[in-house]
Amino acid sequence: MQHGKYRFIVGFLAVPLGLYVLFVIWPFIQSIYYSFTDWTGLSPEFKMVGFDNYSRMLDDDVFWKSLWHSLLFALVLPLVTIGFALFLAFMINVGGRRRRGGPVVSGVRGSSFYKIVYFFPQVLSIAIVALLFAFAYNPDSGAINSAFKAIGLDSVQPLWLGDPDLALWCVMAVLVWSTVGFFVVLFSAGMASIPAELYEAALLDGANRVNTFFRLTLPLLWDTVQSGWVYMGILALGAESFAVVQIMTTGPGGPDYSTTVMVLYVYQKAFRDGQAAYATTIGVALLVVTLAFAAIVMRLGRRERLEF
């Protein structure tokens, strides 16, 4: 029977695996292959050039800048977004004051309203969000500087996206704003599955909110947080960061390369400069970074599983 069992399993796996190989593995192999050529992307002719693209990449200041910015995205964005989302989810679900006759744990007043409001940005496409914020950051008549003016801060009129020291943070803030709602909902769902008796016991022991959060909620939510971290890293390294940088920033990628990220650089090299082979080389570097990120997150996040 063993034999038949495997055939059965293989029968189910063949189609998805085939698709996976065709659309994931094969493009990878092709990309790696092209990174050793001088393919322009605009004509079918190319020749092998060995490691030329790689040595060029290592000497390329813009590549290193984009790598640094991508790493910053991958570290800071998950940290801020998830931290913030955990705080909000905790306040919505657990952080409320105890009310006489009410349930043991409850959120702050109006929490169901907040839950919906926080999720709103998730409904908007990232391109629309980026455009909206590009308007808000307009130093001449945008919402933010206008608000500053309205409250009398006429002298505080930052250039936002026009300032190399601020631009990257402005872009990150947009990503935080647009994704935090999703994690609030995700963590809320996780928190809802934590039994109320545990909170009751903690309260009886005299634990305050901070203790409850760090000793009880966070450990029981750890797996969700970990998945969230990986998901956020994907956003930060991939399509989402490309969209906001491409749509919002000076240049795009500026001012003075202060917001160039790896995906943007891949795009520019392939489709602006007609250097598709070099673009695939940066793509390979991006692949390495992404895999390393996933490995590190899994490694650091490994903990003993709690059963409850």
Partner: peptide, 24 residues
């Protein structure tokens, strides 16, 4: 780890793989 790295890989495909889509 393996599954999720694969999932991550899937995402970086657009970055890398789309170039090959127009391969010669």
């Amino acid at each position: 780890l393996i599954l999720r790295s694969a999932a991550l890989g899937l995402v970086s495909v657009p970055a890398v793989g789309f170039l090959s889509a127009c391969a010669s």
